[in-house]
């Protein structure tokens, strides 16, 4: 794991160095550009703020009610057999439909178990490995009025499954 950690720690400084360096060499007004992009970044956060408030309240209510523990108990026989922490079950299900709702669940896991717990690590990796299957399919196919999606769902689910297994193995 220590090599993985070292590589991880290198990535962001390397990207920052490369982008700013390349920008300077190619004569871009780096700071002006940065400010323009940063403004856009702030606008994005303001846009997602209501979503995040709504979803975190939803997830918070569901957790405080004890419902997650109930799901965990129900799923225990299955998840125990394949070595999947029960806390991840709601996340796996919701992630197929909505990435923002899944984000709410991940943050909940960070809050209750911590980002460096096994669940926290698996959840972090899981969220960065695939897109939301049903959401993406509905938006993209709606744009061209396609209703017969043929083998798209099978392929997308297969790739999601592969990513999920990899996340669990790598997150341990």
């Amino acid at each position: 794991m220590s090599i993985m950690t070292q590589v991880s720690n290198l990535i962001i400084p390397a990207v920052i160095f490369y982008v700013v360096g390349y920008g300077m060499v190619s004569g871009v007004k780096t700071y002006e550009c940065f400010l323009k992009g940063a403004k856009e970044g702030l606008r994005i956060v303001v846009d997602i703020m209501p979503t995040l408030i709504g979803l975190m309240v939803g997830v918070g209510i569901l957790r405080a009610s004890g419902f997650f523990d109930f799901i965990g108990v129900i799923c225990k026989p299955v998840t125990g057999a394949i070595g999947l922490p029960t806390e991840l079950v709601p996340l796996l299900a919701v992630k197929l439909f909505s990435s923002s709702a899944a984000t709410g669940l991940v943050i909940d896991i960070f809050e209750t178990l911590g980002p460096d717990s096994v669940c926290g690590r698996i959840a972090s990796i899981l969220m960065s490995c695939t897109e939301t299957v049903f959401y993406t399919m509905s938006v993209y196919f709606l744009a061209v009025k396609v209703t017969k999606t043929r083998y798209t769902l099978a392929g997308a689910l297969l790739s999601t499954l592969a990513g999920t297994i990899a996340s669990i193995l790598l997150g341990r």
Binding site: N9, D116, S128, C129, S159, L161, G163, G171
Partner: peptide, 27 residues
């Protein structure tokens, strides 16, 4: 998110996350 919730190493997931996303894409 990880840094907000007090991770000792927020960027520590970058390498495994890249491997996992690579696996899903190869599949």
């Amino acid at each position: 998110y990880r840094s907000q919730y007090g991770s000792a190493n927020p960027a520590g997931i970058l390498a495994p996350a890249f491997l996992a996303t690579l696996v899903s894409s190869v599949a």
